[in-house]
Simulated assay, not measured.
Amino acid sequence: MTEETKSLTLNPQLEAFQASLLEKYATANRTAKRGQVVFVGSSLMEIFPIEQWQESGEVAFDAIIYNRAVRATTTAFLLAHLDTQIFDLEPSKVFINIGTNDIGFGVPEEEFLANEREIFRRIAERLPDCETCVLRFYPINTVDFRNDEDERALLATRSNHALQAASDAIERIAQEFGFPFIDVNAGLADERGELKKELTFDGAHLNPDGYRVVLSNLAPYL
């Protein structure tokens, strides 16, 4: 793990935010309806405005969708907080997008893939009737961004090749458990294979228009 990674993962302000968000989720879980749908993962899921769209009536589904993702987290974080992020809600369906930060933070592949497998194993054991859907990582844009220090730092340790190779490995693990592996990326990439500039604000994270593309691809599975 690099010094930069240690600095990020041990950032007191970030840790305080994550703890506050987990506390908020734990409180909300007490009155949440069981047997619904849960989105879980890192910032790629946390900033997906699916709950807000459902509450406003912009989208409508038969089930309630609860977003329990936490930004700047890794597979190890999710593994440590499965109760708050998944199990307390007793969902009938879970959508998982986790692991891009493992790549960005320099976590060894064998470590984060082992964590992915353990996450899947525990879900299969605790929620045998739950449909667990694993999402392919979204493409990123390393060509049109890197315009400021934050973007350069974010994209320096990520590449489309690394992300999609990791997705392929995660797909094989998902198949071991019979979990659907879903590619919702149609329409996100340009002719170069880069995330379309108009669908992202920093090259790695989607903006609302990007999430509308994802949602249109994801809708048949919800």
Rank of each mutant, 00 (worst) to 15 (best):
V184F: 15
L154V: 03
Q175N: 12
K93E: 01
E46W: 07
E111Q: 14
A60I: 11
E23A: 14
A28W: 00
G106S: 10
N141Q: 02
T142W: 00
K24N: 12
R68T: 11
V38R: 00
L21R: 15
F87E: 05
P220G: 06
G35M: 06
F17T: 09
Y25P: 00
G106K: 07
S7N: 10
L8C: 04
T142M: 09
E151Q: 15
D190M: 14
F77K: 01
V134T: 15
T84N: 11
F112T: 02
P49K: 14
A76P: 06
V184S: 07
S159N: 00
S42G: 09
T132S: 06
D202E: 05
N160F: 02
R34T: 12
D202A: 05
A60P: 02
A153M: 11
F177R: 13
G99V: 08
H205A: 09
C130V: 13
Y211W: 10
L155M: 04
W53G: 05
A166Q: 03
I173T: 15
P12F: 00
Q52R: 14
F95R: 02
T9H: 06
C130A: 14
L215W: 15
E116V: 04
L135S: 11
F39E: 03
A204Y: 09
F105L: 15
E51W: 13
I96Q: 04
N11L: 10
T132D: 01
R192N: 14
F61C: 01
Y25Q: 06
E15C: 09
A165K: 12
L22G: 04
L199E: 04
F77S: 03
L14W: 00
E131S: 10
L44Y: 12
N97S: 12
T2L: 06
F120P: 12
A156C: 04
A72Q: 11
T132L: 11
I96A: 04
R172C: 10
Y221A: 03
L206D: 08
D102A: 14
L21S: 07
F120R: 05
L154G: 05
R212P: 07
E198P: 02
G178A: 15
Y66C: 08
M1E: 10
N207T: 12
T142F: 02
L215M: 15
G57R: 01
R136W: 08
H205V: 06
N29D: 08
L82G: 01
F48T: 07
